[in-house]
């Protein structure tokens, strides 16, 4: 039952978007988010949609996957929309009971909803087209310059790598413990929420103990392989920026520029 959980939501592919340097992809996503927050009217959303939908088209990620990313946040979008509709003062269009629906409110609500939707689509596209490993790699290298002010870039990346490495192992283990406890009559499926939470104790205790033991052994194994932190460490895979990275970055800066110009005009 736990077998079919995948880590992240990476959609493997071999397109230009997939091949972009992870650092560049992270920066582009950040620029994209900044653009979204600069926008103050509807016209620039046209540029944003052209940009994002072209990217999705090039990446060959089925649109279905993008929508899947939106689904869990549907209620947040809806609540934001409703609150904005009713809470904004202005020219009244019609009334529902004690609540007024204003023209400004409707406009602002649509505006905010669009912002959220684009935000989610943009970040999903990043995680859909970048494997967790290269994402980690990208984050480590982007944070590298901040090491001097005490950002533990290497340690963070190492923690993420180890977490990714051990998620499947621990899932497998959970499955095993669950079956073992069920064989001894443990019941994980019936009862109310409180009872079910309680029934998880015999699952979590052995899982934690085993996780600590694994951590201990892993630390020993890492030391035996000469690990001593990020100092003087080299990497087999070098990230090298190619022309397509510069082009992609250029396009996103252009988008940001357009939106800033629009805002100032």
């Amino acid at each position: 039952m736990l077998k079919n959980i995948t880590i992240g939501q990476y959609f493997p592919g071999n397109t230009v978007i997939h091949k972009l340097d992870p650092r560049i992809k992270i920066i582009i996503t950040l620029l994209f988010i900044i653009s979204l927050f600069i926008i103050d009217n509807f016209l620039p959303y046209l540029f944003v949609s052209i940009f994002i939908f072209t990217s999705i088209f090039i990446s060959k990620v089925p649109f279905k996957f993008i929508l899947k990313g939106l689904k869990p946040l549907f209620f947040i979008i809806l609540i934001t929309f409703i609150i904005n509709v009713f809470m904004t003062k202005g020219e009244i269009l019609f009334e529902i009971g004690p609540l007024d629906v204003t023209k400004e409110g409707l406009k602002l609500a649509t505006f905010m909803a669009l912002r959220l939707i684009f935000l989610i689509i943009g970040t999903s596209l990043l995680t859909l087209t970048t494997s967790p490993i290269s994402l980690t790699d990208g984050i480590e290298r982007l944070l590298n310059p901040f090491k001097r002010i005490g950002v533990p870039a290497h340690e963070l990346a190492m923690m993420m790598t180890i977490a990714l490495r051990f998620i499947p192992t621990l899932l497998e283990e959970t499955d095993k413990i669950m079956k073992a406890q069920m064989a001894r009559g443990a019941d994980f499926e019936s009862g109310n929420v409180l009872k079910r939470a309680k029934s998880l104790v015999p699952l979590l205790v052995p899982l934690f103990i085993s996780a600590f033991r694994r951590a201990d052994e892993l630390a020993l194994a890492m030391e035996a392989r000469c690990y001593r932190g990020g100092e003087n460490r080299t990497r087999m895979k070098q990230l090298i920026l190619s022309r397509r990275d510069y082009i992609a970055l250029g396009i996103s800066i252009l988008l940001l520029g357009l939106i800033i110009v629009d805002r100032l005009l």
Partner: peptide, 26 residues
Amino acid sequence: NPDNQLVATIVEEDVAFGPENLGIHP
């Protein structure tokens, strides 16, 4: 325990872990 001594999420990255620690050229 083979599970508790592999560090990386991809086989070749794991094999590279030792030499990376030694600071060898990529």
